[in-house]
Write a protein that binds this DNA or RNA. Structure first.
Length: 437
RNA sequence: GGCGCAUUAGUCAAACGGUUAAGACGCUGCCUUCUCAAGGCAGAGGCAGGGGUUCAACUCCCCUAUGCGCUACCA
């Protein structure tokens, strides 16, 4: 039997990270089997419909690289189909109308059980615990239960991959399939992703949209990799793996059935790993595109950093950033004049900051041009020796003088980027600042 | 309350009856070092509790506890 999976979100809000994992696993199952992965928009709840949600879902899946086959199916465009099927059940005595809605008549005898593809575990219910439920609402829209059964039967979805919050509804679905005389598909219920408050991550609880991770500077590869590992460990045990490697290794049986807490700290680490292993030239493009994408925000000030500036800075910041957005606070000082804070100078190990800075300025003026890191390092190590200070202390003083910060990318390289004239100017300004306070 | 699913360190997790109970993030210390990172090395930290079954239980069964989910003419 051909493997066909689908991701079936409801457009009641932007795609969130829990949905990303459901989509990813459905994608992996289909691609591994050479099957079909499609998208179905479950827009049957008019009250909770959110304008733009469908577009966000499609756009985000595309950004992540979870390409689906064919065109999305919109349930709201298939109302007649559901109505027709509800009528069939009424005709066969398996459903009835009440208050303008159609109710399914549940069979209270016996048990309903499935073997879930996740770990092949058996899930069982006493049918006596079930009760009749609505399949067609009085507004003419189907409920999830009817729509799921009809659609997944018609497109021959197998297996049905969805969140574990649906486990409780399994008896309803099984009975519906049987009432139609259809074959019951296999199911895989994925463990639920919880927020740090331990409650289900959902748009109802204001889960962060996946698109926001994009604007925060996360890479799609890192997000997919991280989400895959939430509930799944590849047989190889690899922690960093590409989408195609995941496709090769994936098996629903290996998915665990324990809810997992979404911890962004590890995602940040992983994003850093992906950034570090990206070629400089490629990283430059990613950063540039990222900054352009979100340039309506305040990250890019007065056109900085430009493409050339990014290129210079990439080797310096590559090991130091976890997200693409980190580049801005880390390199701001290269293009903008720093603001000084006397407290920062006070904390330095060098005693007479302004005096030492005067000597530094003197050296800078005499230093052979063009400056380079070797000349620079040699000059100031000598200076440190001559005034009986530690080289590190002198370097740190220079760092604060040119950046206003105690933490920056490597000093000498930063200085080369800032340029001879500007460095001297900033040094003098730092001296003036210190003398004024 | 009822029904269902689950329970290995702060977090993600491996283990599929026999291991000194992997690994990763985070944390701590050391090394490296112009700061911060990155990198290297070392370390702390765990099978929810109780009963069974078995020569042997993290692993199988039962009970309790706890967590989560569902309990809508929402998905």
């Amino acid at each position: 039997m051909k493997i066909k999976t689908r991701f079936a979100p409801s457009p009641t809000g932007a795609l969130h990270i829990g949905g990303v994992r459901t989509a990813l696993f459905a994608y992996l199952v289909a691609r591994k089997a050479g099957g079909v992965f499609s998208l179905r928009i479950e827009d049957t709840d008019r009250a909770r419909f959110v304008e733009g949600a469908t577009e966000d879902i499609i756009k985000t899946l595309k950004w992540l690289g979870l390409t689906f086959d064919g065109e999305p199916i919109y349930q709201s465009e298939r109302l007649d189909l559901y109505k027709e099927h509800a009528k069939k059940l009424i005709d066969s005595g398996k459903a009835y109308e009440k208050d303008g809605a159609v109710w399914f008549k549940i069979d209270l005898d016996g048990k309903t059980s499935i073997v879930d593809l996740v770990r092949n575990r058996k899930i069982e219910f006493e049918n006596s615990t079930q009760k009749d439920f609505v399949i067609l609402k009085s507004d003419g829209y189907p409920t999830y239960h009817l729509a799921h059964v009809v659609d997944d039967h018609l497109v021959e979805t197998n297996p049905v991959i969805r969140g574990a919050e649906w486990i409780s509804s399994v008896p309803k679905h099984i009975q519906l399939f049987k009432a139609f005389g259809w074959q019951v598909p296999q199911y895989a219920h994925l463990p639920i992703i919880l927020g740090t408050d331990r409650s289900k991550l959902s748009k109802r609880h204001g889960a962060k949209p996946a698109s926001e991770f994009r604007s925060d500077g996360f890479l799609p590869e890192a997000i997919l990799n991280f989400m895959a590992l939430l509930g799944w460990t590849p047989p190889s045990g690899k922690e960093i793996l590409s989408l195609s490697e995941m496709v090769q290794e994936f098996d629903l049986f290996d998915v665990n059935n324990t809810n997992a807490i979404f911890d962004i700290t590890k995602l940040e680490w992983m994003n850093g790993e992906y950034i570090r292993k990206t070629e400089n030239s490629n990283l430059k493009v990613k950063i540039r595109n990222y900054l352009m994408d979100i340039s309506d925000n305040t990250l890019v000030k007065e056109g900085h950093p430009s493409e050339e500036e990014i290129e210079k800075v990439v080797p310096l910041i590559k090991d130091r950033i976890k997200t693409l957005s980190d580049i801005v606070p880390l390199t701001d000082f290269l293009w903008e004049k720093p603001e000084y804070d006397k407290e920062i100078f006070k904390k330095l190990k060098v005693k007479n900051c302004s005096e030492t800075l005067l000597k530094i300025a003197e050296k800078l003026e005499k230093m052979e041009k063009p400056w380079n890191t070797e000349i620079f390092e040699k000059t100031f190590r000598e200076l440190a020796d001559s005034i009986g200070a530690k080289a590190g202390g002198v370097f740190q003083l220079i760092r604060v003088a040119i950046s206003g910060q105690t933490v920056t990318p490597p000093l000498f390289e930063s200085i080369e980027i800032i340029g001879e004239g500007e460095v001297l100017k900033r040094t003098k300004e730092a001296i003036e600042f210190l003398q004024a306070v």
